[in-house]
């Protein structure tokens, strides 16, 4: 219990003191995960839309594949990409291993299944007439897509939050692909893993609290964006 109390105290102290190393780590965490989710979202949305409204061979199989990928362990993603990005691997010439770009790639792979699966189920729940009405009223396909997405925006936001939550907190892929390099690829979860292995438990907990506080703020902001959102439509 002492450790926990100390840790909470230390966390607040750390945040308040503006410790540059800590803020660096936080910055890396959010930069990498935000980049990943922003890159992953548009194609995932498109794919989810096709899966929900399209009619093509292999559609059901694709849906099952993405649902299955929900349970892929982060370490497996890390290891697979590690082997691909290593000098000996097929993409070795890009020299991406142990960079933030490698971490972004790993996190994209991790969050795409969540985005596709959850957006798909949200879109599927939308009334098909929204699409038809929009089209009849003269909206182009792109405009109609926006209309339908607006209909189910809460489900889509939930997907976004779940995906972001997974990648901001994952340690396996970031550790393998980034290498936990101070001021370059050390993010909050890998820093926690390091502090824990060093026996600096309170430092680890403090970083965990920092992550939670920042996630809370982010959620609050998104919630605000989402509007008042009880029974919209």
């Amino acid at each position: 219990m002492d450790t926990l109390n100390n840790a909470t105290f230390e966390a607040i102290q750390l945040l308040a003191s503006g410790d540059s190393e800590l803020w660096n780590i936080i910055g890396i965490s959010f930069k990498v995960s935000t980049t990943a989710i922003l890159i992953a979202t548009p194609p995932s949305l498109l794919l989810a839309f096709l899966l929900a409204y399209g009619n093509f061979p292999g559609r059901r199989l694709l849906i099952s594949v993405f649902s299955t990928l929900l349970s892929i362990p982060a370490v497996v993603v890390g290891l697979t990409l590690y082997l691909i990005l290593s000098r000996q691997g097929p993409l070795g010439d890009l020299k991406l291993l142990f960079t933030q770009s490698a971490m972004v790639l790993g996190q994209i792979v991790l969050c795409v299944p969540i985005l596709v699966a959850m957006c798909h189920s949200a879109l599927q729940a939308a009334d098909r007439r929204a699409w038809e009405t929009a089209r009849t009223l003269g909206a182009g396909p792109a405009r109609a897509v926006v209309t339908v997405m607006h209909e189910v925006r809460f489900g889509l936001f939930a997907a976004l939050l779940a995906a972001y939550g997974r990648i901001i907190a994952e340690v396996g892929a970031s550790m393998m692909l980034g290498g936990n390099i101070l001021n370059a690829t050390r993010n909050i979860p890998t820093a926690i893993a390091l502090e824990t292995s060093k026996g600096e438990f309170s430092q680890g907990i403090a970083l965990g609290i920092v992550l939670l506080i920042l996630a809370f703020i982010l959620n609050g902001l998104l919630h605000y964006f989402q509007g008042k959102g009880r029974f919209a439509t």
Binding site: T41, P42, L45, V146, H150, R153, F225, Q226, G227
Partner: peptide, 18 residues
């Protein structure tokens, strides 16, 4: 509608990020 605006700017976000 803030949400609609957000969706509209998504591609812009995306390409500037790339």
């Amino acid at each position: 509608m803030p949400a609609r605006k957000l969706f509209k700017f998504m591609p812009l976000f995306f390409y500037s990020l790339v």
